[in-house]
């Protein structure tokens, strides 16, 4: 692991409050993930890859924007690992970079329909942009 990767990893672990070492590789997070089909990397892979500093592929992956933050993995994990928080911190590591927002307010009008509640828009902006 080079210095830069190790720095990103430590920052992700710190800001998420997740200790990936607690994982016992049971896969219950992935078993319960409703966004499994949309995700390229699954919750248990996030945990394993962050632990190993294999973070670049995660940062490049669209999986970051497919996680529903439904917390099913958090609640059902037998070891209290909280994978969803790790996904969030990896996503923040991406979108906090200059010009790296996944979604901007300019993109929004095209995505709207007339029934879409405000809640969806503010939530998506919170998740996808800084």
């Amino acid at each position: 692991m080079n210095k830069e990767t190790s720095k990103i990893r430590d920052e992700i672990i710190r800001s998420s409050g997740v200790n990936p070492k607690k994982c016992m590789r049971c896969g219950k997070c992935t078993a319960t993930c409703p966004a499994f089909d949309e995700m390229e990397y699954h919750p248990h892979q996030f945990v394993y890859m962050v632990e190993n500093g294999d973070i670049e592929p995660l940062m490049q992956s669209k999986s970051l924007y497919k996680c529903l933050t439904c917390f099913a993995c958090v609640d059902r994990c037998p070891r209290g690992v909280e994978p969803a928080k790790l996904v969030e911190s990896v996503r923040l590591a991406v979108i906090r970079k200059q010009g790296a927002n996944h979604l901007t307010s300019d993109d929004i009008p095209a995505l709207l329909d007339e029934d879409m509640p405000q809640q969806a828009i503010v939530s998506a902006l919170r998740k996808y942009s800084k």
Partner: peptide, 11 residues
């Protein structure tokens, strides 16, 4: 029964 198959990386 919804489960994970870790070796196949499948749900």
């Amino acid at each position: 029964v919804r489960a994970s198959d870790l070796l196949a990386n499948k749900q």
